[in-house]
Each structure stands twice: as structure tokens, then as C-alpha cells.
């Protein structure tokens, strides 16, 4: 069954949404959209680094995404003007990454697969990595769920209850870096943040509890993934953008429905 590239692609899309759903909910609640962008864009630089050092691509993206996420989290804790700082970091990381990759002529033609994803070319190993990474993120969030929710609502309330909000923030940072590393192949660096935000935002209009919102975001992410895959396969459109297009259409449909 796994011999069929379409089956592998579908499983990769579903696997990824297990992580992007609940993590995306936190990105929406904590207004970390730009934060997700900065981390995802840093992945391009990670690709260049991996190519230069002959390391696996996933390791390169994970390392650089983690470094970027920790830097940004550290700066925000020190009270920097986050909007500007994140803007500078996100776009610089992307630009440096693109320039660095251009030094590898063999990859130049392949560049769009890092930017927009190449889900139809997912190998068995890629698939295993997507599921391992996503399940790790899901387990991490489930383990810290109560503490994460409390510190998201109020850091003071969390602190008074013996929770360390800075540690919980680090949990999210690590989860984000993991998601970026596994999502690069599926949706590409430019649109990872979209996969975090759009399904969670759609789920917000339909959910009455944090858990329902995270669960619905998983479902909507999976549906978007499969729908985008179909679109990409039948219309020969780039996969990452196709997935995001379907996610955005679902968002528009639910927004229209809730207004009526």
C-alpha cells in the first residue's frame, strides 16, 4: 500500500495535521503567527546549512529552526518590540537562506520544493519522519496541556500555581521547531505558518472548548491536506499552496456560515 506515492502523500498530510492542529491552536491563542513565520523561514537557511555540511536536510532545518525559535523567545522575554524584531529576523533568515542555497547549483532547480513543499515525492523514510515528529509534538503538548493552557490564559495565575511560564513557552518553541522540520517537505517553508493558523482559526468558530478547538483543527488540517493533494494531483498545481488554498476555502465557508 505504501508503494503508492499518493497513499504516502495522503498519510503524510494526515500525520502532519496531528501536530499542526493543537500547536496551531496555541499559535492563535498566544498570537504567535509571526513567530511561526520566523521559525519556518529559518528552515530555508537550515536547508543550505545541511547541504553545505552534508548532513540530513531534516537535521539542518531542525537545528536552525530551533536556534531561531529560542532566539525569538529570548528576545520577547526581554521585552523587545516583537513586531519589528520578528519582521527583521523572519525575512532575513529567508533571504540569507535563499542566497546560501544559490551556491549549490544542483539544488537551484529543486528550490521550489523547499519553498512550496513536494508532498508527492514523500518517501517511506520521509513519511516515518513526519509521523514520528508529529506524534512527538502531540505527545509533548498532551503532556503539558494543563500547564500550557494555564500559562496561556495568565502567566501570573500559572506562576502562583507553581507552573513556570518560561518553561511552558520553551515547550511550544521546541514543538514549533519540530513541526517546521517535518512540515518542510509537505507544505514548504513559506506556508508552514498558514497550516498552523488557518485550520485553528476555522476551528475557533466551531468549538466551545480548547480541546474541541485543537481536535477540530486536526480534522480540518487533515481534510485540507487531502483536498490539496487531490487538487495538486489532478490540476498539477504546487502542493503546498494547494493545501493552503483548500484550508482557506474551508475557513471562508465556516466564516460565512457563522455569520448567517
Amino acid at each position: 500500500m505504501l508503494d503508492d506515492f499518493l497513499v504516502r502523500a495522503g498519510l503524510a498530510a494526515v500525520g502532519l495535521s496531528l501536530a499542526t492542529g493543537p500547536l496551531g491552536a496555541f499559535v492563535v491563542w498566544r498570537r504567535m503567527a509571526y513567530f511561526g513565520d520566523a521559525t519556518a523561514h529559518a528552515a530555508v537557511l537550515g536547508v543550505a546549512l545541511a547541504l553545505a555540511t552534508d548532513l540530513p536536510i531534516e537535521l539542518g532545518t531542525l537545528t536552525v529552526a530551533l536556534a531561531m525559535a529560542v532566539t525569538v523567545a529570548g528576545l520577547s522575554a526581554r521585552g523587545w518590540a516583537m513586531d519589528t524584531t520578528l519582521g527583521v529576523l523572519a525575512h532575513s533568515a529567508l533571504a540569507f537562506g535563499l542566497v546560501a542555497i544559490s551556491f549549490f547549483p544542483a539544488v537551484r532547480t529543486d528550490l521550489s520544493s523547499y519553498l512550496f513543499g513536494d508532498i508527492l515525492a514523500v518517501s517511506r523514510t520521509d513519511l516515518a519522519l513526519v509521523w514520528l515528529g508529529s506524534l512527538a509534538v502531540l505527545a509533548l503538548l498532551a503532556w503539558r496541556w494543563q500547564a500550557l493552557l494555564t500559562s496561556t490564559l495568565s502567566e501570573d495565575l500559572a506562576h502562583a500555581a507553581g507552573i513556570r511560564p518560561d518553561r511552558e513557552r520553551l515547550v511550544l518553541v521546541i514543538a514549533l521547531a519540530l513541526v517546521v522540520a517535518v512540515a518542510l517537505k509537505v507544505v514548504g517553508a513559506l506556508l508552514i505558518a498558514a497550516m498552523l493558523i488557518i485550520p485553528a482559526a476555522t476551528a475557533r468558530g466551531l468549538a466551545r472548548s480548547p480541546e474541541a478547538m485543537a481536535g477540530l483543527a486536526i480534522l480540518l488540517g487533515a481534510v485540507s491536506g487531502l483536498g490539496g493533494l487531490a487538487l495538486s494531483f489532478w490540476q498539477d498545481t504546487p502542493t503546498g499552496p494547494s493545501i493552503v488554498v483548500v484550508a482557506a476555502l474551508l475557513f471562508a465557508a465556516s466564516a460565512g456560515r457563522s455569520r448567517v
Binding site: Q146, L149, T150, L153, A160, R204, R208, S209, A212
Partner: peptide
């Protein structure tokens, strides 16, 4: 706390809130 700003993006009812963090 002095006040709690429950962001509109988080759906949570009073019963669920009482179960945080225990």
C-alpha cells in the same frame, strides 16, 4: 489576579476554567 483577559480566540467555559491547572 487583578484581571484576566480571556482572549476571544480561546473558547473556554467557566467549568473548564475551574479545572486549570488542577
Amino acid at each position: 489576579p487583578q484581571r484576566l483577559m480571556v482572549d476571544k480566540t480561546m473558547p473556554i467555559n467557566v467549568r473548564r476554567f475551574l479545572s486549570l491547572p488542577t
